[in-house]
Amino acid sequence: MSDTPIESGTRRQALGPELTIAQASEVQQRLLPLLNEPPADLSLDLSQVQEFDSAGIQLLLATRRSLQAQGHQLHLAQPSSVVLSALSCYGLDAALMPLKQSREPAEESHP
């Protein structure tokens, strides 16, 4: 986690394999320093996340909020199927994964 290189203005960090309420505080403490020195876009590699719950989602949303307050973006890199499933259950995949937005309008457009 100390190794968070910045490439083309984006800092990268991998999370997992567990991202649940049990690790929430710890992960929060890991993420906080990444926000500040120096501010940059943050890309979270979620490919290894096997356990994911609402606390994990909250962490992502809070991180995004903090980043946006600084004028930066949160990217989710290669979210695992567990993450994707949770995000789409919450209807959040469009917001957290802007790249996939084109796929999104499916759900509500035709009731």
Partner: peptide, 14 residues
């Protein structure tokens, strides 16, 4: 959901 620094990571804000 508050910003990360203000977040109580174990509380539910959903």
């Amino acid at each position: 959901i508050p910003a990360l620094d203000a977040l109580d990571a174990e509380a539910c804000h959903l």
